[in-house]
Write a protein that binds this DNA or RNA. Structure first.
Lengths: 239, 239
DNA sequence: ACAAAAGTGTTCGCTCTACACCCATGG
DNA sequence: CCATGGGTGTAGAGCGAACACTTTTGT
């Protein structure tokens, strides 16, 4: 249960009894100060040895797809209630060298601060990789990653999901920076602030930054409850 | 090959050897004058006898997912090169009464004029059903239908896919009507024309309607090549 | 006092919306 | 000549893009 089934030696054996396999592969995005990152694990499956792969495992026979995605994510990150969104299912015949395995791709957004490395207490632990520095991945995982990145870019503009990547409390500049990095474009500071403020979905805190050698920024947090309420009343999130 | 595998008596037998099954279920949309319609077949599987279901079959072991979707669609409609888009994969454990079957949902857009009923030459042929008059469907197909309808509503606004539902040659009013029916809202005639005309993705024909007891409308067709070119140059389709 | 990022308003052009009348045809 | 849907323009409001200087803090 704790292991990555695709990397389990028993997997080959299992396979012979199997017409189909269905796995969940999850692109776990994190945002660390300035960079968009993805959780990757080392793949020790034969043709892909020494390559990295996405977090993924086979779905159990008695397990709902959504539950599998949550379990797999929870196993790898030790985090519960993580933002998770299904993106696309990949099903070419030859995408897995050991048999016919469909992959349902999800992307997930975690606060890097919440995700603690166990530093070797778990074997083959996942690590963060800067998205711009990712080379060839195992299986068709480069394509899956690309597809999920595009899905994230779309999502982030029309739903307030970016907050999932930030700490509970953040500055407007951090938020703007997040958007700039994800979308790969520069945004105007004043217009960005106006836009986000007009939506009235941020809670302004009393505290500000301290120990910064410039004017300290105010802290804000995302008001999810208020957002849901405003959405019902017709608010359209757009950035 | 020609049959619906889910409806094949051998299916039960097959199932016992199967850990997983993966099927494609396709919401085939058509637009007939004034109404958005969906192709449905009668389901003769035991707990769902006499209910309708979406067009769907199991994916073959040696068949790519996309190919399966095309094959299934082609079998049911005798049409090739149909617009097809993957929407979501449904994978609750109990969604199929005979075993664990994942379903990859697609929606597809066909010109009703192209789709000819064989009038009983094929057993259990699919028929058009008005979307507003669809009752309980087999399996979780009501949810799949709803999900695909929402996907269509989103797609149609940001990509020129609506044309797939119209004849090659159409009037602006027909196009507007299509949008109004799909989106369930009324649109202003003048503003709609301005918007669509400004994009310059329609070819104006010399012919007009004839035998209509009012001013005849001009015919247009969608210029796909031009659209692709303009898109590369930065055109954003939006309606 | 200097460096560094925070914070703040206004103008202009464009786009969206609302809205009413004449036109071409068949019966 | 009447009924029917086709086709057209304009004015006002709101929105997005561009743009520069002052503020607050640490060193």
């Amino acid at each position: 249960m704790e292991k990555n089934v695709q990397n389990d030696p028993k997997y080959l054996h299992t396979k012979s009894k199997m017409n189909y396999g269905v796995s969940v592969d999850c692109v776990v995005f994190g945002f660390d100060e300035n960079d968009l990152k993805v959780l990757l694990i080392r793949c020790d499956l034969i043709p892909f040895k020494h390559l990295f792969s996405l977090v993924g495992e086979l779905v159990e026979a008695d397990e709902n797809l959504e539950d599998a995605a949550n379990r797999i994510l929870c196993n790898q990150t030790s985090l519960n209630n993580i933002f998770l969104r299904q993106v696309k299912t990949f099903g070419t015949v030859d995408r897995h060298p050991y048999g016919r395995v469909f992959s349902v791709a999800y992307f997930s957004l975690v606060k890097v601060s919440d995700y603690k490395l166990t530093n070797g207490k778990k074997p083959n632990e996942a690590h963060w990789h800067e998205i711009s520095k990712i080379g060839t991945l195992a299986f068709d995982h480069n394509i899956i990653l690309q597809t999920c990145l595009e899905a994230l870019r779309n999502q982030v503009r029309e739903e307030p999901v970016g907050f999932e990547l930030l700490p509970e409390v953040f500055t407007i500049s951090q938020l703007q920076n997040l958007y700039e990095r994800i979308l790969g474009i520069e945004l105007d500071k004043r217009n960005f602030r106006k836009k986000i403020m007009k939506m009235k979905i941020l809670i302004e805190h009393d505290e500000s930054q301290s120990n910064v050698s410039h004017r300290p920024a105010k802290y804000y947090s995302f008001d999810k409850v208020r957002y849901e309420k405003l959405k019902k009343e017709g608010l359209i999130f757009e950035l």
